[in-house]
Design a protein around this nucleic acid. Structure first.
Lengths: 162, 162
DNA sequence: AACCGATCGTTCACCGGTAAATGATTCGTG
DNA sequence: CACGAATCATTTACCGGTGAACGATCGGTT
């Protein structure tokens, strides 16, 4: 009996004609995500970073090379305007350097500084530990089963149109 | 092989010392939630509503009675200031009525109008259908298994302190 | 070689959210 | 019964995000 069970019960009491079955899964997913995001945001705020800024740093760290702003935009699913703002503050904080591509001088290259890379390597383990703590109640077999089921859902949500 | 698998592979390639196992579950949860939220927001925008405003309407519909603004604030996990703003536009749209409680005149009662109730009863089935479509790849047994695993995670995330 | 369309990053105006300050009202305590 | 503390909704100032308009640069066509 968690908060989503109570939610479902309220809907069934007030609107019995509604088929609220999807809430059992979808409601829990959005709820867990909201809570995880809130905690991550709070932890990053202690480090003086926004979630969006951290996403940019992670994208650059994962790529292992400088990325064009447009690439960061698509990877992080954020608008180009957001990338400009984030890059501004990250450059001001010394975590990212702006560069000019040799080929296409329309674009801007975003590159991790040594300090930026150090920030990711310091914050990412904490981030993963937070998530691991949230999943600590599951044994490895349950975790892989959960991941597999979620993957099925994700493929369908990502692939299918609206 | 979904987008989170690729994400994990990138992390392992660039930072092999990191234990990125939690991403398999947590990453998928946050990703699915982001996609579901984006679709819900887009659908509600067609009806002239914000996600936050729809949450207020749903809270009132589920309660089956008028609620104090503070109650709505805690139920929807939004700041009191946000509730004031949402109530302003909902009242202007004729979906919610403000009232004065008999007992405690500090507060404000928010109540669904007939039109507001109709809006929820029209939009909620679409919302649930959207979620059901996202989960359509799962048979009933898988769905209940997924819900049960998610509930375990949710209880831990909700209950345990940071 | 010169244009036209497309692409890229930035800027601007706005939107929805929060935190802190404010005013109104109630509650607890002397 | 009066007064300080607490509670409630609102207002204000700000923050991060988006979409549209804008200048700069590239690519394709003739």
């Amino acid at each position: 009996m968690d908060s989503v069970d109570r939610l479902r019960a309220e809907w069934e009491r007030e609107a019995p004609e509604l088929d609220v079955a999807p809430i059992a899964v979808a409601g829990r997913i959005t709820r867990i995500a909201a809570l995880l995001d809130a905690r991550a945001e709070a932890a990053l705020a202690d480090a003086g970073l926004t979630r969006g800024e951290f996403d940019v740093l992670c994208a650059l760290r994962r790529a292992g090379r400088a990325l064009r702003a447009a690439e960061v935009s698509t990877i992080t699913a954020a608008s180009p305007a957001a990338i400009t703002k984030r890059a501004d503050t990250l450059v001001r904080a010394g975590l990212v350097a702006r560069g000019i591509p040799h080929r296409d001088r329309r674009g801007v290259l975003l590159e991790l500084t040594a300090e930026g890379r150090a920030a990711v390597d310091r914050l990412m383990p904490e981030h993963l530990a937070r998530e691991a703590a949230a999943l600590g109640g599951l044994d490895p077999a349950e975790a892989t089963a959960l991941a597999a089921l979620l993957s099925r859902v994700l493929v369908r949500v990502e692939g299918g149109g609206s």
